[in-house]
């Protein structure tokens, strides 16, 4: 087949017009998802069954089902319930954008909470005992020892999840949102040139992935400054 490079040159700027929406979906659900993840984590490690149990159910459901199905359930399913249409959340859930954010948040929150839990479990018990022996309270140990150490331990896995989330934002195009993927689909339906368009789109996502990986790599390096001795040990 012959590649139509002119079409590619034409369509890339058009697709990039959707990058703003892609970023909104990504950053908003990443931030909300992180907050949710911390809440779920605190519920899980609270030691109280009535907190830990709902958190585990949430995590099990959202990790156990495809995100596309979750988006569809929220977008097509929720409006069926009258109490949802009557609730204060309706103005958000009525919009596909709100539904996409909700689905992405609930999904990434479940994954990230497991990542953070891994970090918390990875904190050296001896370090926490040293804190206790110095008289730090449970809360002080958590804030000053567990959180910073667990954050560093979680970062590599978190950066993977963040990139997955970026790729998952493309699914929002299935519920009428015109992010980069949404624009690409529109162009394809007009030009009947799926290869050129989708390959260009893939390249854009790859560049974004590269940028985010580099950024997280820098943060990891900074946070690991105390893990490996500089120069000679």
């Amino acid at each position: 087949m012959i590649f139509d490079f002119e079409l590619i040159a034409d369509s890339i700027p058009k697709m990039l017009m959707g990058i703003g929406l892609t970023f909104q979906l990504l950053f908003l659900s990443a931030i909300l998802g992180l907050i949710l993840a911390v809440l779920l984590l605190l519920m899980r490690i609270s030691g109280k069954w009535y907190l830990s149990w709902p958190a585990q159910v949430h995590i099990y459901i959202f990790r156990g089902t495809p995100i596309l199905v979750q988006i569809f359930i929220i977008y097509y399913g929720l409006p069926q319930f009258e109490f949802i249409r009557d609730s204060i959340f309706w103005p958000i859930l009525r919009e596909p954008f709100g539904c996409a954010i909700l689905a992405l948040t609930l999904n990434t929150g479940a994954y990230v909470s497991e990542i953070l839990r891994g970090g918390v479990l990875g904190v050296d018990r001896g370090v926490l005992e040293a804190g206790a022996a110095l008289g730090l309270s449970v809360r002080q140990k958590f804030i000053y020892l567990t959180v910073p150490i667990a954050a560093r331990l979680s970062l590599p896995a978190y950066s993977n999840d963040f990139i997955s989330l970026m790729k998952a934002t493309s699914l929002a195009s299935t519920i009428t949102l015109v992010d980069m993927t949404g624009i690409a689909r529109t162009i394809v339906s007009q030009t009947f040139a799926p290869y050129e368009i989708f390959i260009s789109l893939a390249i854009i996502y790859m560049i974004l992935t590269w940028v985010f990986q580099k950024t997280f790599g820098r943060i990891e390096k900074y946070l690991s400054r105390y893990v490996k001795p500089e120069g000679l040990a």
């Binding site: 050296d124 001896g126 370090v127 040293a130 804190g131 022996a133 008289g135 910073p148 150490i149 893990v227």
Partner: peptide, 20 residues
């Protein structure tokens, strides 16, 4: 914790806070 601050402890594996 009021008692613990009067009783110092030194561990076999040092247990310094690695991030500080």
């Amino acid at each position: 914790n009021a008692i613990r601050r009067e009783v110092g402890m030194v561990f076999q594996s040092f247990n310094l806070f690695p991030h500080m």
